[in-house]
Computed example of a mutant assay.
Amino acid sequence: MISQKITVNNPSGLHLRPAGTLCNEAIKYDSRIEFIFNGAKSNAKSVLSVLGACVKCGDEIELICDGTDEQAAMEALTSAISSGLGE
């Protein structure tokens, strides 16, 4: 299991479109992918779970990847989040 803190920088936070982009990237990997925000754990492969976290611009999340391809998943997801998830 690996984890990394990252700041969400897209202007509207994780609303529907970027949440979908995050989930579409996460489901490419076999690893369990979650993030912790405000003490609550969310499944990064579930759009409803991501939306329910209410992550806004400037919020820091802790991304957690656990599985056989955890390193590749972490690199891809941190890159996607850093680049603004398509926004």
Rank of each mutant, 00 (worst) to 15 (best):
K41C: 10
K41S: 14
K41R: 15
K41W: 00
S42K: 09
S42L: 02
S42F: 09
S42I: 00
N43Y: 07
N43C: 09
N43E: 10
A44H: 04
A44T: 04
K45A: 04
K45V: 04
S46Y: 08
V47I: 15
L48M: 15
L48H: 03
S49H: 02
S49F: 04
S49T: 05
V50K: 03
V50Y: 04
V50G: 00
V50Q: 01
V50H: 04
L51W: 05
L51V: 04
G52M: 11
G52K: 08
A53Y: 02
A53P: 01
A53W: 07
A53R: 03
A53E: 04
C54Y: 09
K56Y: 07
K56M: 12
K56D: 14
C57K: 15
C57D: 11
C57G: 01
C57P: 01
C57L: 00
G58N: 08
D59Q: 05
E60H: 01
E60L: 01
I61S: 07
I61D: 06
E62P: 03
E62M: 13
L63C: 12
L63A: 12
L63P: 10
I64G: 00
I64Q: 14
C65M: 07
C65N: 05
D66N: 14
D66R: 08
D66K: 13
D66Y: 02
G67D: 11
G67P: 11
G67Y: 14
G67N: 09
T68E: 15
T68D: 15
D69I: 11
D69F: 10
E70A: 11
E70F: 02
E70Y: 05
E70L: 03
E70R: 02
Q71W: 00
Q71N: 14
A72I: 09
A72V: 09
A72L: 13
A73L: 10
M74S: 05
M74N: 04
M74V: 06
M74W: 03
M74D: 06
M74I: 03
M74C: 04
E75H: 07
E75G: 00
A76I: 01
A76V: 02
A76C: 10
A76Y: 01
L77Q: 08
L77Y: 11
L77W: 08
L77N: 12
T78R: 11
T78C: 15
T78Q: 13
S79G: 12
S79A: 15
S79H: 12
A80E: 13
A80K: 15
A80S: 14
I81Y: 09
